[in-house]
Write a protein that binds this DNA or RNA. Structure first.
Ligand SMILES: [Mn+2]
Ligand SMILES: [Mn+2]
Ligand SMILES: [Zn+2]
Ligand SMILES: [Zn+2]
Lengths: 144, 144
DNA sequence: AGTTAAACGAGATTCAATCTCAATTAAATT
DNA sequence: AATTTAATTGAGATTGAATCTCGTTTAACT
């Protein structure tokens, strides 16, 4: 499962004439190790803690690479930091974010996606990407 | 129209025991002068050019204020800068953004909003805000 | 006019992200 | 297996939007 994807990553690197380096593999493996939505520094610190230290610059460079080749997706919860999540199952989804505790729930709504396409078409735009974030209070945080 | 809103702004300032300063009025007036989606520095530079210079710090402070009291809305087109637009008519809308030229089209879809509420409810979240941005190529930019 | 707390401006600071460049290393070539 | 070559790395510098600091100014109340 993860191994198969690791292989896919290596294949992409090779086919793009990019080097298969221990640092790149470490970042890939770290990103795939949880379903969390983490920023570059979270990933950097996790690797460091696990004695698989990779420089911050390389973490940034590698997540960009993973993004480019669709191994991760990136979300922006408007706190000034990009967050990354692995994309192993390729299930498109959007996010519902608690404005107090930061908890993130994932959802997917086919009907909204259809309407988005229709909207883009009506303005003669070719849709390439969408961002749908819902912000609110989770049940734990509702009563402050 | 704009005058009526300027009055409303002054009233809010006074009711909140905030001072009605030339700088705040200048930023308010500048923000309301177009329907564009501009970042703080755009606003700063426009004011400067019009010989109504206000410091950058004050522009930032004032757009925060305008946001807090709902005179502007803020959008994030993921280029690292907040953009502001006046909120005179209070029409809720979302944005369709050209990834090449940056052109922004506004739209509103009641049905999507209904579905969003339903989704939030299903996860027991109290919705406070949403972000819906569609990214694509406009008709001018489609053929590169 | 005098008082006072809020607001201002200039410049310092923060912080995520990117860049620079010398040293290292993956991998293609002998 | 050794050599060559170009990509990659890490340390630290840089960028740029946004925020903060702090001494000075000013709106607004008396
Ligand atoms: Mn997710
Ligand atoms: Mn708008
Ligand atoms: Zn919460
Ligand atoms: Zn365009």
């Amino acid at each position: 499962m993860a191994d198969k994807n690791l292989q896919k990553f290596k294949d992409v690197l090779r086919s793009e004439h990019l080097k298969v380096t221990p640092q790149r593999l470490a970042v890939f493996e770290e990103v795939c190790s949880t379903d969390d939505h983490r920023d570059a520094d979270d990933i950097y610190l996790s690797l460091k803690q696990r004695e698989k230290a990779v420089s911050r610059a390389t973490v940034y460079r590698t997540v960009d690479l993973l993004l480019k080749y669709n191994f991760v997706s990136r979300i922006d919860i408007e706190d000034g930091k990009w967050r990354y999540e692995h994309w192993l199952d390729c299930t498109r989804h959007d996010h519902l974010i608690c404005v107090r505790c930061g908890n993130i729930v994932e959802f997917s709504d086919k009907n909204i996606q259809i309407r988005e396409k229709r909207i883009a078409k009506s303005f003669d735009y070719t849709l390439v990407r969408h961002v749908l974030n819902l912000f609110g209070y989770c049940s734990d945080c509702r009563g402050k």
